[in-house]
Structures are given as C-alpha cells and as structure tokens.
Amino acid sequence: MSSNATTAEGEVPQFYELVPHHHAPHGSTQIGFWIYLMSDCLIFASLFAIYGVLGGNYAAGPSPEHLFNLPLVAVSTAALLLSSITYGFAMLDMDEGKKTGTLVWLVITGLLGAVFLGLTLYEFYHMIHEGAVPQRSAFLSAFFVLVGTHALHVTFGILWLVTLLVQIGMKGLIPANKIRVQCLSMFWHFLDVIWIGVFTVVYLMGMLR
C-alpha cells in the first residue's frame, strides 16, 4: 500500500526522466558502424589465417613469384592510398559546408577506387587466363578468397559512394547525408587498412617465399 503510494507520487515518471540522455538523431550510428567494421575485421582475420596456413601449398602449380606482378600491385596500392587522402579532403570540405568541393573530392575518390578495382580484375583475368584458377591449388583458393573478398568490399564501397553522390546532389549536405559520408569514410579507410595487410602478407611476403 505504501509502495503504491510512493509510485503514485510520481517516482516512476521521474525515473523515465533520468534515463534518456540527449541524443542527436544519428548519435549512435557511428559507434554501431564501427562495431560492424570490427566484425568485418574478424572475417578478414579468418581469411588471413587461411591464407597463412595454405599459402605455401602450391600443389605443383604456379607459385607467387610466377604469378604476381609487383609493379602492378604498387600502382593499385598507390591508387588506394591516394583515394584515402582524397576522401579526407572530401570530409574537410564537408565540415566547411562546401557541397561542390565535397562532391568533387568524392568523385576523385571513386575514380581512384575504380582504378584499384580495375587493376585487381585485370590481375584476376590474367591469372585465370594462365590457368591459375582457384581450384588449381590451396594457395590459389586462399588467394582468390582473400583478395576477392577485399575487392568485393571495394566494389560495394564504390556503389555506396555513387549512391551518396546522388543523395548529396539531390538533398545537399543535410545531417543525414553527413553521417552517411562519415560512415563511408570509416569503411573506406578500413578497406585501406585491410589492403596494407594484403599487400604485405600476400604480395610482398609471397615474393620472398
């Protein structure tokens, strides 16, 4: 009875006033996206583990030094690295509210991503043409899965970027679009981090084996 009385005095509504912190409309989007990126990181970690275990099993097939073209890898690495800084410039222009500058830098970023993707596809085509297909050896299976998953991520990154260009073009730099640009920024730089692992472990260490 007495507990009912205290509840009736308004303690419960007071409790509900305590809990809600003031959140911006997209307040938790970034941390949520970060958690997604970390889980994506674990996918790549398992693929790296597979490559680390199977990377030496050539099954009398072609080995990295016969297949890899380091100058080509250097060019695609440069393209991805440049796209990171151009995305950074897009972020800076967005913070200053410059819509055209943001769009221009995003377009340049997308083009550099397309160059990277084109070079990866060229490499895949070249390898498959030489008979170095995924089913040839465990090394090639692991290679195609690891590098292919990264290339798939870049593909979706470019698709997302094109979508974002349309959205910014239509609605301008509204808060919703800003949060999208920030999330894609994290995604894009994250792909660059994964690529550092790929070119170090697959290509450079592959040539040393």
Binding site: H21, H22, H23, A24, H26, G27, S28, Q30, L81, S84, I85, G88, F89, M91, L92, D95, Q182
Partner: peptide, 17 residues
C-alpha cells in the same frame, strides 16, 4: 555528444598520407 569523432585537419591528413 553524438559527434564524438575528431575529424582531423588538412595538416593531420597530409602527415598521415
């Protein structure tokens, strides 16, 4: 709050690059 990320400046981007 909700904008907890530090976006960096042109200088930090160039240093990183």
């Amino acid at each position: 709050h909700g904008d907890g990320h530090d976006h960096g400046t042109r200088r930090t981007y160039l240093i990183g690059f």
